[in-house]
Structures are given as C-alpha cells and as structure tokens.
C-alpha cells in the first residue's frame, strides 16, 4: 500500500465537502486547485466544478478525501458502498474513450485509486490500520511494535496448547486411538470458541475507541486527545493480530480453511 504521509494527520486536507473537521483547514475551505483545462478553481473534486473535466489526483490525497469523507472510523458503510458504485460509474474508463489520452489516463488513475480506497475503507480493521499508517503511528515492515509482556505470555501459552493438540492429532491417530480424535476435536472446538470470544471482545473494544476517535475530530484543540486515542487503537490492533492468528490456526486444524 502506498502511504507516504508520516506527519500528524492534517484533518480535512484536500477534502472540500468536509465541514466536520475543525482545525486549520477551516480558514481555507478548499485547496486552491485550478483546473488543468479551463484554469478556473476546480473545487478539488473528481471533476472540475466549472467545466466538468476529470481532474488529476492531488499528490497527498488520502482515501477518506477521495470519498469526500471526514477521517471518521465509524462510517456509514452502505453509504460508502453506494458512493463507490456511483463513482465507479462516473470514473469508468469506458466513459472516456473519445476523450484525450491525458483524460483517459486520469480516468484510469482515478478508477484504480477508487478501488484501492474502497477496499481499504470498507473494512473497519483495514480502515483504522490505514488511518494509523497515514499518521505514522503504525508502520509496515521493520519498525518495532512492542507488545506488552503479559500479552506475549498469554499468546505463547495459547499457541502452545494449540500445538499440543496438533501433535496429539498427528500422533494419536492409528487403530486404538479413535476415541481420542473425537476428544481432540472437542478440545479444538472449545479452543476456537475461546479465541473467537476474545476476538469479539477486542472488536467491541475497538468499536468503542472508534467512537472516541470520531468525537476527538470535532474538538478544535484535539491533537493531544487524538494522539492518545491513536495509541490506544494501535495497542488494540496489535492484540487483535495475535488473536486473529490463533483463530486462523485453530480453524486450519479443524479443517475449516
């Protein structure tokens, strides 16, 4: 995923229709972009407000801005889907077959951005990951994300018990051990329910912090609050990835994947 933004999130930037965000962008309501074709202010949307020609993507636009959404985490998902379909229709390269090569390329560029943006934002987990990535709170690759030691202990133990079950399964199959297999399946199923329960708990917690985040967006001096919420989100996501792996692994053992 191409994320270059590592500064603090500048809310509402490049987001013309967004009246939610409070800070610095309020004094300059729209980015002063002018249309490449008619030179009038384009309005910052997909198409020029004056002449209707398709516009190039702003360099640092984010996916929220692409859908003209504030950087909220609790979003109207059906609304997003509807917007996605509308935009797919409007930006579809087929509409530009008679246009100039430049416009055809812009249509391609915007269409592919649309797909990336939609894929990223429609799922709440990838949405929050995206937000944190843009803010530089969460990074891909080499950065060290420390997990709390108790969590590591817990995850390690859960993994070990799963491993024991796995080994017992591969060893204890032949002849006399038929009964053990049923027992093992029961244990695995129990473990799975346990992990799924934990996953549901994390998701519920995440959802609560999503709401907290959305509230900070309305605060004019919410920078510190937003930072704190982001740290909380990051921790929950870390916890979630461990648990998600456990759920997946036990599912594999049960032959569900």
């Amino acid at each position: 995923m191409g994320c270059a933004g590592f500064s603090a999130p500048t809310l509402g930037e490049g987001d013309p229709e967004n009246s939610m965000t409070a800070t610095r962008t309020q004094t300059e309501p729209t980015p002063s972009l002018s249309c490449w074709s008619c030179k009038a202010p384009s309005g910052g949307g997909h198409f020029c407000a004056a002449c209707g020609k398709i516009q190039p993507l702003p360099r640092d636009a984010d996916y929220f801005a692409f859908f003209a959404l504030p950087q909220k985490l609790q979003i109207d998902e059906p609304g997003l889907e509807q917007r996605f379909h509308q935009l797919s229709w409007k930006l579809h390269p087929d509409n530009f077959v008679k246009a100039s090569e430049y416009e055809r390329n812009l249509a391609l560029e915007r269409s592919s951005e649309l797909n990336d943006a939609y894929r990223m934002l429609r799922d709440p987990i990838s949405r929050v990951e995206y937000l944190l990535l843009r803010a530089g709170v969460r990074k891909e690759g080499t950065t060290k994300q420390q997990a709390p030691p108790e969590l590591l202990e817990e995850v390690f133990e859960l993994n070990e018990s799963l491993d024991e079950l796995r080994e017992a399964k591969s060893e204890g199959l032949p002849s006399e051990a038929r009964g053990d297999l049923t027992e093992l399946r029961a244990k695995l199923t129990e473990a799975q329910q346990n992990f799924q329960q934990k996953l549901a708990e994390v998701d519920a917690e995440l959802n609560a912090v999503f709401a907290e985040w959305d509230q900070t967006l309305a605060q004019p001096d919410g920078d510190a609050a937003r930072k704190a919420v982001m740290a909380k989100l990051n921790e929950l996501l870390n916890r979630r990835s461990y648990i998600r792996n456990l759920v997946r692994n036990v599912g594999e053992e049960l032959g569900q994947n």
């Binding site: 891909e140 994300q145 997990a147 969590l151 590591l152 995850v155 870390n238 990835s241 461990y242 792996n245």
Partner: peptide
Amino acid sequence: GLVGAPECGDVMK
C-alpha cells in the same frame, strides 16, 4: 527472551 511482532502476530521464544 519472549518477543512478538504484532503486525503479523508472530511470537518467538
């Protein structure tokens, strides 16, 4: 030493 990589959910002892 017990360490973990939360991005991918790996744990290493």
